[in-house]
Structures are given as C-alpha cells and as structure tokens.
Amino acid sequence: MGEAFTLLGFGPEGWGHALLTAGLTTLAVSACAFACGLVLGTLCAWAKIAGPPVLRRAADIYGVVLRGIPDLLVIYLFYFGGRQIVTAIANQFGHTGPVEISGFVAGSLAIGLISGAAQAEVLRGAFHAIPPGTLEAARVTGMRRWTMFRRIIAPQALRTALPGLGNQWQSVIKESALVSVTGLVETLRAVSVAANSTELPFLFFLAGGAIYLAITTVSGLVFRIAEWRAMRGQPAMRVGG
C-alpha cells in the first residue's frame, strides 16, 4: 500500500504530477472536441431542418458514415490524413505551404467530428420540441431569421437539448482515451507509460479509471445543475436524452 502511495504521489519517484497533467490534457482535448462537435452539430441540424436539399443530403451522409465507422479508425484517418485536408483548407484561405497537425488537433477534430454527428441528432430533436407558436409569433412580429435563431430558437432548443448534450459530453470524455494511440500524452497514455515503466499495470490502469470516473462524475453534476437551472420557471417537462 505504501508503495502505491509513493508511486501515485508527487515525490521524485511518483507519477502524480504526470497523471495530473495528463488528466488536464484529457479535459482540454474533450473540451475542444465537444466545442467542434457543437459547431458541426448545429450546422448539420440546421442543414437537416432548413437547409437546401444538397446540404440536407450531405448532413445525412455525414451522420451515416460517422456512425458506421469505429471511433478508433476515425482518429487514425484524421491523424494520418488530416494534414492534407487542413492544408487544403488553409490554402483556400490564402495560407501557403503545409500546415502541421498535432495529435492534439487531430484528436480533437476527429472526436469533434464523431460527436458532431450525434449532437446534430440531439439538436434536431430539441428544435422539433420547440412549441411552433413561438416561432409563428416571432415571424409575425417581423423578426429576421438570424435574430429569430438567436433569441427564440437557440435559447429554447438548448434548454431541451441539455440532457442529450450532457450525454454527448460524457461520450466525448470516454472517446478521448482513444487519442492515446496517436502518442498524445493524455490520461490513458500516461497511465500506460507508467504501467509499463513500473510493471504495475493494475495499479496504474485503476488510477486511470479513477481519473476518468472523477471527470465524468463531476461534469455530470455540473450538467445536472445546469439542467435544473435551465428548467426553472418551465412547466414540468421531461425530455429523454
């Protein structure tokens, strides 16, 4: 037991510091990925609800493809192929020459891409749950589309979407463990290195599990509180996530 404390601690022989940094990296990757997913998900949800047929079709295909490929392969593909894509996009915007894409960026984008497909469904569901009357009222008062989106659609839809988005955030954290295959030192990679170096895999993988559990539990609580606050003043309504 004493040995375990030394190894997990913050002393010179302890891996505590490495694990803490890695835990923060997991959080950072997850946050970037979730944000990417939210942007993509919003765009896709819009395309599916009100977009022109071409975009609607594209959004559908994106959803089917991303839900049909293992996350691990999406990460590999992004890690190895992402550079060409990002370079092509950057060159479109006037940047010349190739663009580096690190494990962090590739991982965030890949998981964002996976999560975007799921978040699009959550957001679309939330949009359809908006009482049509409020939309009509907005239209009647002569609101422009963007104003309507900002002031009527987004606030209402996000409130309904919160439980589903909370689930997505939890998935993103768990999927972020797969980014370890690119060599990025996030939680899983850090505990693997420590497990190999000390030859105590049980101790370190257990510690890794505890880090993920702590992150999912705490952020789960945060989402619960956010839901509760968003629902204040609303008629009792449950939306399955």
């Binding site: 463990a177 899983l188 505990v191 895999p201 993988f205 890794g208 993920y212 559990l213």
Partner: peptide, 15 residues
C-alpha cells in the same frame, strides 16, 4: 459507463 472501454480492456488484460 463512467470509464472508457479501452481502460477496462487494459485493466482486465494487463492489470
């Protein structure tokens, strides 16, 4: 549900 499947596999296999 709170931990990644990958870590569960490692824990069972190597752990």
């Amino acid at each position: 549900r709170g931990t990644p499947l990958l870590i569960q596999i490692f824990l069972i296999y190597y752990g």
